[in-house]
Design a protein around this nucleic acid. Sequence first.
RNA 1: GCCCCCAUCGGCUAGCGGCCUAGGCCUCCGCCCUUUCAAGGCGGCAACACGGGUUCGAAUCCCGUUGGGGGUACCA
Length: 475
Amino acid sequence: MPIKVRFPPSPTGLLHVGSARTALYNWLFARHTGGTLVLRFEDTDRARSTDEAIEQALRVLEWLGIDWDEGPTRQSERMDVYRETAERLISEGKAYRCYCTPAELDEERTRRQKAGEPVIYSGRCRRLTAVERDAFEAEGRPSAVRLHVDPAGETVIEDVVRGTVRWENALLGDHIILRSDGTPTYQFANPVDDIADGITHVVRGEDLLSSTPRQLAAYRALGAPEPVFAHLPMILGPDKKKLSKRHGAVSVEEFRDRGYLPSAMRNYLALIGWSFDDKTTVMTTPELIERFSLERVNTSPGVFDPAKLEWLNGEHLRMLTPEEYVRELQSYLERVGSPLAQHPERVAEVAPIVQEKLRELAQFESFAGFLFGPVTYEDEAVRRVVDDPDAPRAVESAKASLEALPEWTAAAIEEALRAACHETGLKPRVLFFPLRVAISGRTVAPGLFESLELLGRDESLARIDALGRKFTLEG
RNA sequence: GCCCCCAUCGGCUAGCGGCCUAGGCCUCCGCCCUUUCAAGGCGGCAACACGGGUUCGAAUCCCGUUGGGGGUACCA
């Protein structure tokens, strides 16, 4: 039987890395097996669902390169289906109307809680006589619809990642499938759609494991074949708590905006809860698709580690061809509205000398901005030069050799500067450091010789002069 | 309270009874690359939660404890 999976986010907030990982696993599984992926928005909670959230989710999926084969559908457009299905269940005696008020339900809950009993619905309204029911209706009492869950026996699943998991049916209670306003609950809309869509594998977060028996009760009531379940371990914040907005950088778009590559994000996300073997870390997306399997998903929750993502992004940045790198960099600069985006030719010239160092494209502006316009000096960098007794000599000698240079290329510059080292007896690190600060204003920058070449002779010498004046003034 | 899940270095993980004096990656710390450095190379610190079993033999299997997580909604 062909495999069919789905990713059904509820558009009630930002799609964070946890949901993105779930989407990714479904996608990898579908692509690996040649199956089908369905995208569905579960927006039955009208109060909390927003169009903005849907648009955001779509943007994230597009950026991540996760495409789908069917949908996106919206549950809010299928309200009549859920209602009709619930009605049918009522007429078949598998569901019933419940007239209990929130206050009554609340009271029952606290009473059971105190008594140390499982907190489930008593099933009181299931036993209502026709007369009692008519009375409630006449009274105009609102009613919800509950699914009658047979308390006998147990519900057992063979979870692909967790193995056998079982629940006593007596501990389930009759849950609500249709609210009193006529809208379906997740416990109902979700299985109804999964059945309608012919979903064969339900791959989702572990937070949904406990709700599985309730959904399976719906499958049974509807006489549908059960899907295979795979509950993925949760992704936790650094405090080992469930991921939330409180944890800062967990919104996928935030990483996109800092210049992360989708391929790096996919690689990193794939590695929380899954591994290929004991050695492989860096993987391209085709490799991920080729190697992914639900059987190798592990059971324990994982902490989201931005540091490793950052490292991995550097790896993926370096895997790009020079041409690809320029394209990524230029489009990144445009997307974030960087002024440097105005100079695509310059970006193309500079890109090769930063590719080996950057971990995030967002670092580009501070790392290479000095090649686009005037320098701004970091206090720290200037101070270190001013405090260096050898600096004046270094600058003077370097300046002399550079001025005499017939040809302004990185190779010639390197040769001249190394000769200057030899003449002055200064170590390269000592002689080069003030030059780096002079042209870039920073202690951390791309390669010195390449930077000088790109900057041009006049500008380079002007900056070296400017720094020289700085320490005749301050030193 | 009740139900379910989980438990290897600071983090991600490998390990599915002997190959483990526990391997890889990130982080951190050193050293090297007669150029800073966030790049590269080399090296180092660092873990089987605890207690009982089972077994010739347990990180691996079973039970319990502890700890963490999730659910227990007319949220998803």
